[in-house]
Simulated scan of single mutants.
Amino acid sequence: MTGGKALGTFRSFYVPAMLVGPATLIVLIPFIASLVVLGVYSVGFYPGGAGFDLGVWKTFLSDSYSWTVIFTSIRLAVIVTFFCLLIGYPVACALVRLDSMLMSIIAYTVIFSPLLMSVVVRSYGWLLLLSDSGFLNSLLGAWPLNLGPYRLIYNEIGVIIALVHILLPFAVLPLITVLLQQPQQLREAAADLGASPFAIFWKVTFPLSLPGVIVAAEIVFALAVSAFVTPAVLGGGRVLNLSRLVYENIGNIEWGLAAVQALILLIAAVGVLLILERFNRRTFGEKS
């Protein structure tokens, strides 16, 4: 009996640990090593550095321009996350309700096939579409609209539009997953009790899908706040975020400042993710 219990414990814990362990080490070791390197560089221990010195931290955190860039990065990520959820939620609802296999294949291909294309190509594609003489402004300027041209590139508008398009699939996927897990019987029971379609959505579908909404928000925010290529291409150097500052300081051989900015970017991203995860645990932990 004891041997069987020990074998069961081995299978339930050690076997999964052995299966997941190699992949976990491959992910964790470079991540931890990079954090150590950034931490060491941020306090002056790098080739040509002055040794232990917190001057770079003090300079960066006391500079109002640095805080402006930090808040710009977070604000852009929040806006992109909001629009990805606003657009992605109805898309996910429509996808899970498709009955035709052919239509499902076409819809999933349209939504997720852009992930197969480089983010550089998609960013330059949006640069052509949104330019003053691009497709969108040409369409708005055609008769009878005769509007524009509007300045849609080299500003935050173009960056937001491109990032929403690029990151939308990352919001749709977790939303589809959580919507597919919802029991159809709950919506049917609500309809039998006389609930309207809107009431069914607001009282049944949406509350049950909130974990997927939070996960989608976490993924999109983490990718948006650390985006580099799209803000660089669509922003034209006028939309600065922390990723761009890190790149520029690496090019200027400012290793300590680049390390500090990279750590601040990580802290900001992890801080927002922890807030979302805490909200998720408090909301659904109390209900369970």
Rank of each mutant, 00 (worst) to 15 (best):
M1E: 14
T2M: 12
G3A: 13
S12D: 06
L19G: 03
V20I: 15
P22I: 07
T24L: 15
V27N: 11
I29W: 11
G39F: 06
Y41L: 05
Y41P: 00
G49Q: 03
L54Q: 11
K58N: 13
T68I: 05
V69P: 11
F71N: 01
S73Y: 03
V78Q: 03
I79N: 10
I79L: 04
V80Q: 12
C84A: 01
L86K: 05
L95C: 04
D99T: 13
S113A: 03
P114D: 06
S118I: 14
V121Q: 10
W126Y: 12
W126Q: 13
L128T: 11
L136H: 08
L140H: 05
L140G: 10
N146T: 12
G148W: 01
Y150D: 11
Y154T: 07
I157P: 13
I160F: 09
H165A: 03
L167A: 09
P174W: 06
R187C: 14
S196C: 12
A199I: 08
I200A: 01
V204S: 02
L208I: 09
G212V: 03
A216V: 02
A227R: 08
F228M: 07
P231S: 04
V233D: 00
L234D: 01
G235I: 00
G236D: 09
G237I: 04
L240W: 10
E254K: 10
V260D: 00
G271V: 05
L273K: 02
L274H: 02
I275M: 08
E277M: 10
T283P: 04
